[in-house]
Every structure is written in C-alpha cells, then in structure tokens.
Design a protein around this nucleic acid. Structure first.
Length: 704
DNA sequence: ATAGGGTTAG
C-alpha cells in the first residue's frame, strides 16, 4: 500500500477568483436618462398650482388649505403656531408666481415643523392628563383634524399618545374618529406595544367606531413587529365581520406576516388570491412575495415572481431590485446577481446603500473576491459608509481565500471610522483566521492581543481561530495551552470547535497526536474515544465501523462532513487506507457524502469536490476498485472516464486537490490527464483505461 | 413628513 501523506496548507487561492463583472459605467446610465428626459433641466419646477390663471388670495396668516372637504374650523390657535414668524402682513400674490408656492411651502413646512416639535414635547412630558392638556393647549380650542394627525403621527410615547388622543377626541367632534385611532395605532406599533395596539382596537370596536383597511393593515403589521404572527392571522380573519375586504395593502402586510411566521403556503395563497381579485398589484406586494420566497429558500420562486411582475407590466422599483439581489445572493447565485444588477442599471436605477450591501454580501458569500472588493471600493469612493457586518462579511471572504493585504486594508479603514465600523470580536476572529491561513503566527497573536486590549473577552470563535493557527504552525503545545485557557474562561466547546481540534489532529506530528487527542477527549468524550480507537491498529475495523456510525448519527448535521473529512485524513496519514474506506463507506451510507460517482452512457465520473484530500484519495481508490470489478464482471466501459476535482475555491482543496491528484495519478501510472478545456477535470478514454485497469488487477501490483 | 404594506445581513 502506497503511503499518501496529507498536509493541509492554506494557500492563496486568488487565482481561482471569478472574472469581474462589468458594471455599467456612469456614462451609459446618463445616456439612458437623457433618452427619456432630453431636456430635463427645462422641466418646470412648480407643478402643484391647481387653478392656473386665477388669482388667489394667499395669506400667510391663514391656515393651510385643508385637503378634506370639511369646512376649515375657525382658527383660534395661538399666533406662534398659526403664523410664520416675522411675517405679519397680508400679501396678495399671483399663484402662478413661483414665489407664491414657495411662500406657501415655507409656511406649510414651518407649520409641520412646529407640530412635530409639539409631538416631541408630548413624548417627553409626564403622562398625566393635566400636563398633556397643557402642552396641547397651544393648538387652541378647535384644532383641526389634520393637526391632530400630524401630532400623533410624530409621537413615540404610547402613554402620552393615548392621553393626546383623548384630548383630541374631546376637542374635535369628527365623524371619522377612525383616523385618529389609526394614527394612534401607529404609535403603538412604533414602540412595539402590542397590548397598547390591541386594546386600542378593542376600544374602537366597543365604541362602535368602524375599523377599515388601514386599521387592519396597521394592526397586522403591529403583530408582525411584535413577533405575534398568530395575532395577525386572528385579526385578518375577523375583517369580514366589519365588512372589510382586504385590499392590496392589507394583502401585502398579511403576506409578509405569514411569510415571517414561516407559513409560506398561506402567504402564497393570499398572493394568488390578491392576484385574482386585483387587476394590478403594485411593486411593494411583489417585493414582499419575493422576500417571502427568499427567506424560505425558494429562490426560483423568487425569480418567478419577478418575471411574473414584469409580464404583468408592473415596473420593478429599487426596493424590488434590492430584495431580488439579496435573494440571489442568499441563493449563492452571483451570476444572477450580475444579470439583475445590469438590468437594474439599464432601467435607470442607481444603487443605494441597500443595493451595495446586497452586492457585498452576495459576492462575499459566493467568494467572488474581485467583485466584492470592487463594490467595496466603489462604496468607499462614493463616501457610502459600510457597517461592521458588511466589513466582517468581506473579511470572512478574505480569510477563506487568503487575501491578507485586502483584509488589512479593510481593517485599517474600519479603525479609521470607529463610529460606524468599530471592529468587534467577529472582525478579530476573521483576522486571526487570515494570519493563521498564511502561517503568520506572530501576527495572529498580535491581533489577539489587540483584541483583548480593545476590551473584548476571547470568545469561542476567536479561540477556535487561534487554535487553528497554532495547529497549522504545528505548535501543539500552544494548542493545548489555548484549549486550557478556553476551559478556564468557562467556554463550552461546541461541535465546530471539536472539528477544529480534529483538523489540528490531521496536521499534528505523529508523536504529538496524544496531546491533541487528550484535548478532544475532554471536549467531547465520545469523539475522543472514537479517535483513540481509530489511531490504534489493534482495534478491528468492524469495531470502528459500529462506533463511528453511532457517533455520526448523533452529531450535528452541519459538522458531519467536516468530521468525516478529518477522520479519513487521519487514517490516510497513518497509512490505514482500509480503515479510511470503512469510514468513507459509512459516510456514503449515512448520506454524509453523496454523488461521488456518476454514470452516463458516454462518461463515468468521480466527483471529489467537497472532499478533503484524504477522503478524495480514498474515494479514488474505491472508484478504481469499482472500475476493475466492472471489467472483471464483463461490463463495458463508456468512451470517457473523468475525475472532477473542482476548480479549487473551497477551503480544503484550493489548488491542492488537483495537484495532489495529478501526482497520485502519475504514481499509479494511471492514464488520466488534466483536461485543457475543462477546469478541474482529469480525463481518460476507455482505450487507455482498459489495459491499465487490467494490469492493475494482476495480484502482483499493490492497491493504491 | 400629513391615517396603512416592502430592502438588516455573519
């Protein structure tokens, strides 16, 4: 049996970077806009004069004309709320004159500002009837309903809002009491007071105030922000009792509520219902549905909605695009992100912060470093600040791909804008991983020191990274020391951390395996005992088989493959290939690995892309045995045989998997050759493979 | 901004 020694080195895999996309240049966007608005600078800036040609009396002391049909109440408010300051005279202005609308706008703005100011005052005053009434008295005895709406809408204190509502109800005898209730419901939602919202709604019903669609959409979205989806459903289902038929806004709110509560089927049912009832849905509803599909990982569904929306002639807006870009990013489909982004730009939209955030996330997650870093630099260039999550996302990508310099550039930038992007323990963890991958132990240690000096307690992530680093550098004593430190900090090792120890095990010199195994035993006794048996030649393979199967059915799904990779690597390192095969077989039976072999009429293939080096070589060994057996059984081979090692973007293989395979295939005298036109493939023909497999079958030639 | 729904993540 030939020995295969595995050394997991983390190299820079920058060469594997995807080609950068071509963002549309600004010029093209401008050209597009120009085609639609060739003389946009000549567009009139004043458009809201309703009666052109007529002379209207515009007095700055008059209340702003109300939009409702109600006759304006005689103003009795105190002058400082009614009038703009320092302008006392009544003037006559032609409404066609831009000055008129400007003055009117100014007056409306300052009036709004005063009412918003009043809301702020009410927010911070004592929640007593007396004090609230005192603050509100500046509105006079007969405030308008509009004033009430503006004040309440700007409030954020549920107690004083309720008292203000009472005051307004006292002063204003309006038929449409529902509006004041609705706007107060919004305050309850703003401060996430479900009880406040629901009791207000119940009060409405008791007093016989008819709720409307606005009431229901507000209560539904309140339930949503309060994480009470069942309440949203409950009220939604009661709409019929009040002769309310949900309109598009209510549907949209409810689709969102169902989506967030994980009831995708109901969300989609409502969407279909809304589509049947409504001739036209607006982009918000579509964005909501795209989001629902996206969060339930139905990414094709999300794309379909987008296509449907376009087919129905509804123009996507920026939020639609942002939602969709984010969905495709979550789906891990950076190519679709590019297509959609191009489409977005060609439709005249410029990216905003959320767009950029979606792009950074998408490209970072997909490990498209050129694109991710280009977007990052574009944001920096435009002065759009990133936040710590986005920066950390970029750093995690850099850590995976070994982009040391770029990571340092981002880290320095983060330190320069601490108010937005203050490095956190996540940041430090990525940096330690980066240095650990490039084998820079001292740099990793100094980052660790800097982190502690910045006031962060070492957490499990950071310590995992640090142990990884020491493992790569074969500093096993430091691994043990760090492990002890972790236990002293009362941190309980998790599955991932044990995976890290297993990884160290595959890198440690044989004479130091015992030290690492000791740590593993303390972190996870079951795993420790399996490893102890695994490295013991005296233990029989069938015992290993039983023990391993028991362990693997009981550990977390997300670490199964990683554990398997490590254990198989360990066996291969110790020249126990049969034992590695036992583990591989178990992994296939438990579905931990799948699709390793495939057969079509023209080609049989071996796929080792998600395997570690040892596991991949073990799979190769098994495949070749299978091929030999097929020949022995008189089966005919297809014209082509292929091995797919992948293009080396993932953590384990990098460029390593392909190059190890190349030398291993040479060692075996196997006639496979790297395909010049298919990256990551080794190919051979039936004609070349047959004699080789036959010679391999002769008993004098050892197995792999 | 003037009663209701939608882009926040590792």
């Amino acid at each position: 049996m030939a020995s295969i020694h595995i050394s997991c080195t983390c190299s820079t895999a920058a060469a594997a970077a995807a080609p950068s996309s071509s963002l549309l240049q600004d010029g093209r966007r401008r050209a597009f806009l120009f085609a639609f608005f060739p003389s946009s600078s000549h567009l009139p800036t004043v458009t809201h004069c309703k009666r052109p040609g007529s002379l209207a009396r515009v007095s700055l002391q008059d209340p702003v004309p109300q939009t409702s049909a109600d006759p304006p109440a005689e103003s009795q408010a105190s002058p400082e709320l009614r009038a703009a300051p320092a302008v006392r005279s009544t003037i006559w202005v032609n409404p066609n004159n831009p000055r008129a609308s400007r003055l009117r706008q100014q007056s409306s703005e300052s009036r709004y500002a005063r009412l918003a100011q009043l809301a702020e005052t009410l927010d911070s005053c004592n929640p007593t009837e007396l004090e609230v009434a005192e603050k509100l008295s500046v509105l006079g005895e007969k405030p308008s309903e509009q004033e009430a709406v503006i004040v309440l809408n700007n409030m954020g204190n549920p107690e004083t809002a309720l008292l203000s509502l009472r005051w307004f109800q006292e002063k204003i005898r309006v038929k449409k009491d529902v509006i004041l209730y609705n706007v107060t419901l919004k305050v309850m939602r703003k401060c996430r007071s479900w009880d406040g919202a629901e009791s207000l709604l119940k009060e409405m019903l008791e007093k016989g105030v008819e709720p409307d669609n606005v009431t229901f959409s507000t209560i539904i979205s309140s339930a949503r922000v309060c994480n009470l989806p069942e309440k949203a459903v409950q009220w939604f289902e009661r709409m019929g009792e009040f002769d309310c038929r949900p309109d598009d806004v209510t549907y949209s709110a409810m689709i969102d509520a169902y989506g967030r509560s994980g009831n995708v089927d109901m969300a989609m049912k409502l969407y279909d219902q809304a589509r049947e009832e409504k001739r036209r849905l607006d982009p918000v509803t579509f964005s909501t549905v795209i989001k629902v599909y996206s969060t339930s990982n139905n990414f094709d569904g999300a794309l379909n909605v987008y296509e449907e929306m376009k087919a129905l002639g509804v123009k996507p807006n920026l939020i639609t695009y942002n939602t969709l870009l984010d969905a495709m990013g979550r789906a891990g489909r950076p190519w679709q992100v590019k297509t959609i982004y191009r489409e977005m730009e060609s439709n005249g939209f410029s990216p905003n912060r959320a767009t950029y955030a979606a792009l950074v996330r998408a490209y970072s997650r997909a490990r498209y470093p050129e694109d991710a870093l280009r977007v990052y630099r574009e944001m920096k260039g435009k002065g759009i600040e990133l936040n710590v999550v986005l920066c950390n996302t970029l750093l995690a990508m850099c850590a995976d791909l070994g982009y040391v310099d770029e990571a340092m550039e981002i880290f320095q930038e983060m330190k320069r804008s601490p108010e937005l992007c203050k490095p956190d323990s996540w940041t430090y963890s990525s940096l330690i991983t980066i240095y650990s991958c490039s084998g820079q132990v001292e740099e990793a240690e100094s980052i660790f020191t800097e982190m502690v000096a910045s006031g962060f307690e070492p957490n499990i992530f950071v310590l995992t990274s640090l142990i990884q680093c020491y493992g790569k550098a074969k500093k096993i004593d430091n691994v043990v020391e760090t492990f002890d430190r972790m236990l002293k900090l009362d941190i309980t090792p998790d599955d991932r951390f044990c995976g890290c120890l297993l990884n160290v095990l595959t890198e440690a010199p044989v004479e130091e395996l015992g030290k690492v195994i000791e740590c593993i035993s303390r972190a996870n006794p079951a795993l420790g005992s399996l490893v102890k048996q695994l490295v013991d030649e005296k233990v029989e393979d069938k015992v290993i088989k039983v023990q391993a199967e028991e362990l693997f059915t009981n550990i977390g799904k997300e670490v199964k493959k990683a554990y398997c990779n490590c254990l198989i690597d360990l066996c291969v390192n110790l020249d126990m290939l049969e034992r590695a095969c036992v583990l591989l077989d178990m992994a296939l039976r438990l579905g931990i690995y799948s699709g390793l072999q495939s057969k079509s009429t023209t080609q049989w293939s071996l796929h080792v892309r998600s395997l570690s080096l040892g596991a991949a070589l073990t799979a190769l060994h098994v495949w070749m045995n299978d091929l030999s057996r097929a020949l022995e059984n008189g089966e005919d081979l297809p014209p082509l045989l292929g091995i797919n090692t992948g293009h080396g973007k993932h953590r384990y293989s990098e460029k390593g998997l392909a190059s190890v395979f190349e030398s291993q295939l040479r060692k075996l005298n196997a006639p496979f050759h790297e395909a010049p036109d298919k990256v990551g493939w080794f190919l051979t023909t039936k004609v070349a493979a047959k004699p080789w497999l036959e010679s391999r079958n002769s008993p004098t030639v050892a197995a792999v």
